[in-house]
Amino acid sequence: MSPVNYVYLAAVLFTIGAAGVLIRRNAIVVFMCIELMLNAANLTLVAFSRIHGNLDGQIMAFFVMVVAAAEVVVGLAIIVMMYRSRHSASVDDASLMKL
């Protein structure tokens, strides 16, 4: 088996995560799907790291993780704020920026 298979798996996970972002309405679940996509990307980076035999990919994955953590912190804070003001965590309820 070639490590490229990991990349294929990452593509599948990424696609599933993307579909989840598009389909789900609960902001928290949407967030989880985004995390899933980030992890898929990380898997790709790690697999590339192995294919190319250097650790830069892992470093990248590490940075992605840190950024993801920051994003989660802020994002969840926003969700909490949203819930406080609207009593709902549905992304469809926050649709004031329409016509």
């Binding site: 389909i23 992304v91 649709s95 016509l99």
Partner: peptide, 17 residues
């Protein structure tokens, strides 16, 4: 075209993807 701007984040996400 304006109707595309329906305010729903998910619609925007679809166009992004």
């Amino acid at each position: 075209t304006r109707r595309v701007q329906n305010g729903f984040v998910r619609s925007y996400a679809v166009s992004m993807f």
